[in-house]
Simulated scan of single mutants.
Amino acid sequence: MLRGVDLEVPRGSVFALLGSNGAGKTTLVHILSTLLKADAGSATVNGFDVATDAERVRESISLTGQFAAVDEALTGRENLVLVARLRHVKDPGAVADELLSRFSLTEAGGRRAGTYSGGMRRRLDIAMSLIGDPPIVFLDEPTTGLDPQARIEVWDTVRQLVRGGTTVLLTTQYLDEAEQLADRIAILHRGTVIQQGTLAELKSLLPQARVEYVEKQPSLEDVFLALVGETDDDAPTERKQS
Score class of each variant (00 low, 15 high):
39 D>Q: 07
90 K>D: 15
58 R>Q: 10
84 A>P: 06
59 E>W: 09
52 T>Y: 08
63 L>I: 04
133 D>G: 07
46 N>Q: 08
100 L>Y: 00
94 A>V: 03
128 M>G: 12
139 L>V: 05
101 S>D: 15
65 G>E: 08
115 T>W: 03
61 I>A: 13
103 F>Q: 00
83 V>Q: 14
69 A>H: 11
101 S>V: 14
116 Y>I: 13
69 A>S: 15
78 E>T: 01
60 S>C: 11
112 R>Q: 02
106 T>R: 15
132 G>Y: 04
126 I>K: 04
126 I>W: 02
124 L>Y: 02
44 T>W: 09
85 R>F: 05
39 D>V: 05
64 T>Q: 15
137 V>I: 03
65 G>Y: 11
36 L>R: 12
110 G>V: 06
38 A>R: 10
109 G>Y: 12
70 V>R: 10
52 T>D: 07
61 I>Y: 14
82 L>S: 07
103 F>S: 05
52 T>M: 06
111 R>S: 12
109 G>L: 01
103 F>D: 08
67 F>M: 07
55 E>S: 07
50 V>G: 10
53 D>Q: 14
141 E>H: 10
87 R>N: 05
104 S>N: 15
34 T>Y: 04
52 T>K: 11
118 G>M: 10
42 S>K: 12
124 L>M: 12
133 D>N: 15
108 A>E: 07
32 L>Y: 09
102 R>Q: 14
37 K>Y: 14
89 V>P: 00
112 R>V: 01
115 T>F: 07
135 P>Q: 08
107 E>P: 00
109 G>Q: 13
109 G>W: 10
101 S>P: 06
52 T>Q: 09
91 D>A: 02
116 Y>S: 14
115 T>E: 13
135 P>V: 15
139 L>E: 08
134 P>T: 01
81 V>L: 05
51 A>C: 09
71 D>A: 11
107 E>I: 00
81 V>Y: 08
43 A>Y: 08
67 F>C: 09
131 I>G: 09
75 T>K: 01
105 L>Q: 07
99 L>T: 00
83 V>Y: 13
65 G>L: 14
38 A>V: 02
136 I>P: 06
137 V>C: 04
45 V>Y: 02
92 P>K: 03
115 T>M: 03
116 Y>C: 14
131 I>S: 06
59 E>S: 05
93 G>H: 12
56 R>L: 15
141 E>M: 05
73 A>D: 15
41 G>V: 11
104 S>C: 14
121 R>E: 11
44 T>V: 11
99 L>A: 08
48 F>P: 03
57 V>E: 13
40 A>I: 04
86 L>A: 13
116 Y>R: 15
58 R>P: 01
85 R>W: 07
39 D>G: 08
138 F>Y: 10
33 S>Y: 09
64 T>F: 05
39 D>F: 07
117 S>R: 04
81 V>W: 08
57 V>Q: 14
116 Y>K: 14
94 A>E: 15
47 G>P: 15
118 G>I: 10
58 R>E: 06
68 A>H: 05
86 L>Q: 09
115 T>K: 03
38 A>P: 14
87 R>C: 05
102 R>M: 07
39 D>Y: 04
133 D>L: 10
111 R>N: 10
91 D>T: 05
